[in-house]
Write a protein that binds this DNA or RNA. Structure first.
Lengths: 147, 147
DNA sequence: AGCCAGAATGTGTATATGCACGTAATGCTG
DNA sequence: CAGCATTACGTGCATATACACATTCTGGCT
């Protein structure tokens, strides 16, 4: 356990691997979702808003594990397209958002396309690898959350 | 094997998981590399250029599994900071790049900081999870490469 | 030589991402 | 109730990311 870092080469960068894989799958989901005009990140975000009723930026930031300020901007396209709208909240510091009827409808329409993409990826990887990857990612997120 | 997609909920999105994990670790590496002024993506890119001698955009795109056009712009900061410079290539369609002395020096200086970050992540995850995650990611990239 | 299919790249556009810094509202505390 | 630490945000800045479309070369074919 002394200094295992002596053997570490940038070739074995965890970050590089994760980012690479994320890019690859992002493209795949993007192709499937294209007809809806939604990017995968928008699809996810919209999904959380649909599911969570009125939510604040801060809460969304926790849910999607993204920087707060990033979400401020990621919400813009959704607002612009009328998929999401502001909701009154008790605390005037907070900005709550809800999905509009159009937003809920589009999400519903996008769902099967997302499932297609998910299926494509899972089929390519196989059931075992899918399980392994999800498991490893979930456990990683837990461990890294504490940092 | 008929339609396993019936049970798929967006909660189990492979893409969402991968992107989330990638974001998390990116921040960690970023903090460690901050003193060098390099982002993790720049560190990786610079590393490949240092290692591969004169390389073209297209070749780099393969190496880092990134869209060609993204690399065109990702190279800009490195060029601007004099870490990388154009190299003459036989084919005038191609633009080759090499690391400058400053680039090589900075990369060398960044290496231990990268190792720190990598260590932090690995320590948080533990050896087994690290191995599992890398294995799953590597196998995934292989399978997804064929798409 | 002349032409053209294909290769290697750049640009416009739009989104995603996080940090440093700044602002407004809340609630506690003296 | 005035003051202040805290909370919940937004903005400027820089980079990352990819697609559609346009451009420039190269190499082979006639």
């Amino acid at each position: 356990m002394s200094s295992p870092s002596l053997r570490l080469s940038p070739t074995e960068c965890t970050c590089f691997r994760l980012r690479g894989a994320a890019r690859r799958v992002t493209v795949i989901y993007g192709k499937h979702l294209a007809p809806t005009g939604l990017k995968i990140s928008q699809f996810s975000l919209l999904g959380f808003i649909v599911a969570e009723g009125p939510v604040s930026i801060g809460r969304l930031a926790e849910l999607v594990a993204t920087d707060r300020t990033t979400l401020t901007r990621n919400l813009r396209p959704l607002l612009h397209d009328g998929l999401v709208e502001p909701a009154i909240s008790g605390d005037r510091r907070r900005r709550d958002f809800v999905a509009t009827a159009a937003g809920r409808a589009l999400f519903k329409r996008a769902l099967p396309l997302w499932a297609e993409a998910e299926q494509e990826v899972r089929t390519a990887m196989g059931a075992k690898l899918t399980t392994d990857l999800h498991g490893a990612l979930d456990r990683s997120m837990e461990k890294l959350a504490e940092l």
